[in-house]
Design a protein around this nucleic acid. Sequence first.
RNA 1: GCGGGUAUCGCCAAGUGGUCAAGGCAUCGGAUUGUGGUUCCGAUAUACGUGGGUUCGACUCCCACUACCCGCC
Length: 377
Amino acid sequence: MSYSDYFGFEILNTSSETNARAGILKTPHGNVLTPIFMPVGTNSAVKMLTNEQILNAGAQIILANSYHMYLRAGCDLIRKAGGLHKWMNFNKPILTDSGGFQVFSLSKLRKITQDGIHFQDPINGSKHYITPEISMKIQQDLGADIIMAFDECAPYPCDYEQAKSALDKTKKWLERCFEAHKNYRQALFPIVQGAFFEDLRAESARFVSKFDAAGYAIGGVSVGEPSEIKNKITAYTAPLLPFNKPRYLMGVGTPVDLIEGIKSGIDMFDCVLPTRNARHGTFFTYSGNKIIKNKQYESDFTPLDENCDCYTCRNHTKAYIRHLFKTRESTAGTLLSIHNIHFLIKLSQDLRNSILENTFESYSKKLLAGFNSVNKN
RNA sequence: GCGGGUAUCGCCAAGUGGUCAAGGCAUCGGAUUGUGGUUCCGAUAUACGUGGGUUCGACUCCCACUACCCGCC
């Protein structure tokens, strides 16, 4: 028995001039067509959306967070409920993050030791301790299809020593994660760290590649660095990972970053941006980001994007959504979330099709020109 | 009709006899990348009810008027 009884990855075609590839990821809860964007459902829910809305927006796989579920619902409860899939009644693949990044980004008070991370719940101040073994236990209780290694994410900017130290810990912790993880129905993805130093990234990629995993992730990006730096380190790192396994770029991103990542050979993405932006009133279009509260949409009776066929664009106008947003109706966030999630998933699937049809280079170039026509996104 | 009170930007609301009259909301623009669902940043207004007076100087003191509010007849 091994994870390969439950997981598989098939590459259907590759781009001739770039590292882009189109594939199928097999999981116990169904197949995922890659490249794919995965919506984030931190607290076992994609904010403001029902499962039906998530699925109608095109979601094939979603994320949930160990950190949040551990602190709030509690892992015992989820285990008793029968795991995340039954708990939230979501029957498609789920991926859980390990909690390493959340401790890094959310906990004000934390202390990192060689063994694990001490931190305080940012909401009630209670003290907690997570080790690689505990993270594996949490993620086993949650029961997602894909689980992530417990890593230490270096901040940006950071010096070489700091990056090296975080990487060394991440390497040791990865060994402990694999040692502790025995459930073959859950694929454990290692995470490449190394901040923005190429030699550290190379070292990390070499190290994780030694483990026989169902997929590999690139972490440590989207921590405040400029997009150019992110895309450069991604382009450098992705090809160093096993060719025939899915590569997951964590925390990315914008429509442009998605294209750049796919170009570099990335197969999976997740990001809070579509839903957070939606809650704050920004929506994606093929001609760049736009802000629904802007006065120019006051009497604009056209959809968010003329070329979008999501539920929101098929049914509502900018003027209406703007009104909902200005009057703080939560439906505004729902409608924009549906659009933004649909947009990124559609983008990934359209690019997938272009790879299959050998038109990726021209198609992605055309999209980039559109995104850059209004602003940087 | 009598007595009392209040009148400051679209709204609410500080405030002192002395360069540029707080702040909040609203408005306008921006941010957001392994999620803190009411977040953060920035911008804008020829606002002191009207007319007189006192004073070197009044939004701040006095008088009248107007509007509104509260009592009484």
